[in-house]
Computed example of a mutant assay.
Amino acid sequence: MRQNPLRTLFAQKKLALNGWASIGNSFLAEVVADCGYDAVTVDLQHGLFSIESAVPMLQAISTTNAAPLVRCSENSLGEINKLLDAGAYGVICPLINSKEDAERFVRACHYSPRGGRSYGPARGVLYGGKDYFEHANRTVLTLAMIETRQGLAAVEDILSVPDLDGIFIGPSDLAIELGLTPDSWSDDKVDQAIKHLITVSHARGKYVGIFCGSVEMAERMKAYGVDMLTPGTDVQLLRAETSRRIGILRG
């Protein structure tokens, strides 16, 4: 089976950079993936498109060296199964608030006896290889989003779930939960929460990813030792570069 580069980088203790595809267009997803990211996540939670659009986006990402990841819209076995069958090599699941949530998520991502995933990876076999079934459980990356007070409080129980590879921190929702605005990543309450999540995860040998809304935040998270960071969505980067060029030309 094709290797998951995120697992390789984690074993080598090297940072992975993750692109974020929130516009439902396969060509744009391919362009993002071709920029040099180690992975690109197709976002079904906040992306304004359905699973029908996600499949050609995964196909487009697969033409590059970036690993195709997804953020599912919810903790749903049916949706997660379809996305994995379509060739996703990792799943970020939003709103994991308890050990039970994490167990349900992990079960959806693994074949028996480690889970309850149904067999039928039509495109997964095309991308991963003919021995997909034998290695999928050890190749697909499972990351639980921690973005609420409940998830923050229960993180150690969540991390105790067998076969959960790690967490993905949602700093904007976490800031809102802590009574702040979504862009308050540098506030001490959010900063301490993020450092706590990184510390407890790494103490268990678990993976830590995080979304960063700015280069400044990404640099701080890199210094904190996260394993994967996302330096903005396709929309954010498109707006930023467009605004920068217009600003230069308008003087």
Rank of each mutant, 00 (worst) to 15 (best):
E216T: 13
T181D: 08
A193G: 02
K222W: 01
D157L: 06
I210Q: 00
R239G: 00
K189L: 14
T199R: 14
S243R: 09
P182C: 10
Y207F: 15
L174T: 05
V155K: 03
G179Q: 07
E156I: 10
D227N: 15
R239D: 02
M228C: 15
I194H: 00
T199A: 14
S160M: 09
P162R: 03
I158V: 15
E156P: 05
S160P: 01
G170F: 01
K206L: 12
Q192A: 12
K195H: 14
S160C: 05
E219M: 13
Q150W: 02
K189H: 08
E156L: 04
M228I: 12
P231T: 02
G209D: 00
I194N: 00
Q192R: 14
E241R: 15
G232H: 04
R239I: 09
H202R: 10
V200A: 06
S201C: 10
R204D: 07
A240W: 01
I169A: 03
V208M: 12
L197N: 02
K222R: 15
L229N: 09
G205N: 07
H202V: 11
I167M: 12
Q192H: 09
T181H: 14
G213H: 05
V208R: 06
D188P: 04
T181C: 05
G213S: 13
Q150N: 13
D157M: 07
P182S: 11
F211T: 06
I158E: 04
F211G: 03
L180A: 02
L178V: 09
D188S: 13
G247Q: 09
R239P: 00
L237H: 04
P162V: 03
T148P: 07
P182A: 12
I176L: 15
L159T: 05
R250Y: 02
E241H: 12
V215K: 13
Q236C: 04
R204I: 06
T233H: 03
T199D: 13
T148S: 15
D157F: 06
V161R: 08
I246N: 02
I158N: 09
L178D: 05
